[in-house]
């Protein structure tokens, strides 16, 4: 029997022997009625401090919404971004909800939820642009923030043979201005957070095609928190189905006037 268990994955073993499935994190959340969520309140609009020093933002509301589906309360614990994984490992928090990018190298240490926001690199164009896909950038004037991920990917596309002209700008605002105000460029490469914020300010921008580089934000949990992971997955699905995630996005980024085109 022991030998058989060695051949099985952790999940398969756990399904055979219920006592192995014990998820201490999930049990503790239920017992105390509190889900301790770690975040670094320095990344608006996902997390920041309000005038009274209380944490607010997309992730704070997301944590409260997920906790509510379990009938418990979310307790927000402010932790520096780089210290979040260690804080989770030491059991001082139950999860990280802090615009935390998925990292496959950490799957031995942690469990992850499905992404709830992709902050990756997008192509953005004015709403009246004929550009519909990456291939349409050939022969175009494309703007990037100098030194950014967009700049790096733009140079990579050029090295790989895409004939487009790359123009650098010093800030995201200057970049967007060159696209919408001066029409100096026909498309820009911009991270999805900045794009969504610009849309929320009412700027006539739309993202086209899939992200050129994906940066999915996920909820991070302890490695042995099987049950918690399942509960988080169910809650996110539930919130998605009820339109709560879309409302959260609108609350913290502003309304999105233009339908995204990712095909």
């Amino acid at each position: 029997m022991v030998g058989l268990l060695w051949l099985l994955t952790a999940e398969q073993s756990a399904s055979l022997l219920p006592f192995l499935r014990r998820d201490a994190t999930w049990q503790a959340i239920q017992q105390r009625g509190v889900w301790r969520v770690g975040l670094d309140p320095s990344f608006p609009p996902f997390e920041m401090l309000d005038a009274n020093g209380a944490p607010v933002g997309y992730d704070v509301d997301l944590a409260h919404a997920v906790a509510a589906t379990w009938g418990v309360r979310a307790e927000i614990v402010a932790v520096g971004f780089d210290s979040l994984p260690d804080t989770l490992k030491t059991g001082k928090i139950d999860s990280i909800v802090s615009a935390y990018p998925y990292d496959e190298r950490l799957t031995q240490d942690f469990r992850f939820s499905a992404p709830y926001f992709d902050a990756g690199l997008r192509i953005a164009v004015p709403i009246d642009s004929p550009i519909r896909a990456l291939t349409d950038l050939t022969g175009r004037q494309v703007g990037v923030e100098w030194g950014s991920l967009g700049d790096m990917v733009g140079r990579r596309l050029q090295r790989n043979g895409m004939a487009m002209t790359l123009t650098p700008f010093e800030t995201p605002d200057a970049l967007i201005g060159a696209l919408l105000d001066t029409r100096q460029v026909e498309a820009i490469l911009l991270d999805a957070v900045s794009l969504r914020q610009a849309q929320g300010r009412g700027l006539s921008l739309r993202g086209v095609d899939a992200p050129l580089e994906s940066v999915p934000y996920v909820i991070v949990m302890p490695q042995r928190a099987y049950a918690l992971q399942e509960q988080v997955a169910a809650s996110l699905q539930q919130l998605q189905a009820r339109g709560e995630l879309a409302k959260l996005e609108e609350r913290w980024f502003g309304a999105q006037a233009i339908e995204e085109q990712t095909e």
Binding site: S42, F43, F81, E145, W146, G147, S148, P168, F169, E170
Partner: peptide
């Protein structure tokens, strides 16, 4: 350093 969230970082263009 041009980390988007580190308090001692600068924008990528400034870093260059």
């Amino acid at each position: 350093n041009d980390h988007p969230r580190w308090t001692r970082a600068v924008r990528p263009a400034q870093r260059i």
